[in-house]
């Protein structure tokens, strides 16, 4: 499974939504499933899947799927 797929699955698992809904444009608080509680679950899921520990600044900045992708790149997670 490549990292793009891992990212989609992580979002789907943490937010309890279908992978079909997950696009780069999906934004924090734009759907009821991605609220502040789910955001914490998402952080936990991403850290687990990619075996990293995110800085608090990055958690605050993670406002969309696209942004998550950018932030993860800083942690040496590559997206082809």
């Amino acid at each position: 499974m490549d990292n793009v797929e891992k990212l989609r699955k992580a979002f789907a698992e943490a937010l309890q939504i279908s992978e079909d809904v997950i696009t780069d444009d999906l934004k924090y608080n734009s759907i009821k499933e991605w609220d502040s509680v789910a955001h914490m679950a998402l952080v936990a899921e991403l850290e687990d899947v990619f075996d990293i520990m995110l800085d608090t600044d990055d958690i605050i900045e993670m406002s969309s799927v696209m942004k998550a992708r950018e932030i993860l790149t800083k942690y040496n997670v590559e997206f082809s």
Binding site: M40, A41, V43, A44, E45, E47, D48, M53, T56
Partner: peptide, 12 residues
């Protein structure tokens, strides 16, 4: 606590 919650919330 901040870092612990990340490990804990994964298991709810």
């Amino acid at each position: 606590a901040q870092l612990a919650t990340r490990l804990m919330s994964a298991k709810h």
